[in-house]
């Protein structure tokens, strides 16, 4: 009974058993509540494609990618990939990147807490270079061949800086002081973000190329990312660190 009920909920055609059209209430309810969940997570995508188009898109998405978890803030994990593969939207490749960014913001809000580096003196900054570090659990890096972050901002912030059409943008999304934040990654950040995704020390990174003139820049960027709470120590605080 439940198997056929479950199957019919996601089918496009109404089951013949629905004599009074009452089963349809369940079918509609499923689609409406899931559309609303996606609308909450992807407001900029909805603005970009328009409300009606978004509704139609979510119908397809719900049927192809129904939720796998009762936690609705996790729903939409595949929405960006779905948009990339949706051929009628192939002229708008930035939509998937905007969706990635919006999904990352929701995940960042709910991500685990951790301790930040203390960066209030030169000594504490130098000490941090030898401490094993990782990306904050809230961090997502969205690499886009489009100005995805600028496009997203333009949808939700009326005073956003005008975007540069052909720019590529790498955005870092994370939670800082309990607020979800996003910024454009600096050109040298990619290396650091890759390195610390592996839980390493900064010293291990520069040991690979000790004489490289870019080391000074990397140290500066590391300190910036640590102050922002994007790179954090992997273990509970000892001297030189704080919550």
């Amino acid at each position: 009974m439940q198997a056929s009920f479950a199957h019919a909920l996601l089918e496009t055609d109404l089951p013949e058993v629905d004599e009074h059209g009452r089963f349809n209430v369940y079918r509609n309810n499923l689609r409406i509540t899931l559309r609303n969940a996606l609308r909450t997570t992807f407001p900029a995508v909805e603005k970009l494609v328009g409300e009606d188009y978004f509704s139609a898109l979510t119908l397809l998405y719900v049927e192809r990618h129904p939720p796998r978890s009762p936690i609705m803030t996790e729903y939409g994990h595949d929405f960006a990939a779905f948009l990339s593969g949706f051929s009628p939207l192939s002229d708008y490749p930035y939509l998937a990147d905007v969706a990635r960014l919006e999904f990352a913001r929701v995940q960042a809000y709910h991500a685990a807490d951790t301790h930040n580096f203390r960066m209030d003196s030169e000594a504490s900054a130098i000490a941090a270079l030898d401490i094993r570090a990782m990306l904050h659990p809230s961090v997502t890096v969205v690499v886009s061949e489009n100005p995805a972050l600028s496009i997203w901002r333009a949808q939700l912030e009326p005073d956003a800086t005008p975007l540069i059409p052909d720019a590529t943008e790498t955005a870092i999304i994370w939670r800082q002081d309990d607020l979800v934040t996003e910024m454009l990654a600096h050109a040298d950040d990619a290396l650091l973000l890759r390195h610390f995704a592996q839980s390493q020390t900064f010293a291990a990174l520069i040991s690979e190329f000790p004489d490289d003139p870019s080391v000074a820049t990397l140290i500066a960027r590391f300190i910036n990312l640590a102050i922002a709470g994007i790179i954090v120590p992997t273990h509970t605080p000892i001297e030189g660190e704080m919550k």
Binding site: M1, L30, T33, A37, P66, P67
Partner: peptide
């Protein structure tokens, strides 16, 4: 009610027999 079947979560309170 039930809300999950075969790994899919239906986000609704569905009727039981």
């Amino acid at each position: 009610a039930w809300s999950s079947h075969d790994g899919v979560y239906f986000n609704d309170l569905l009727p039981v027999v």
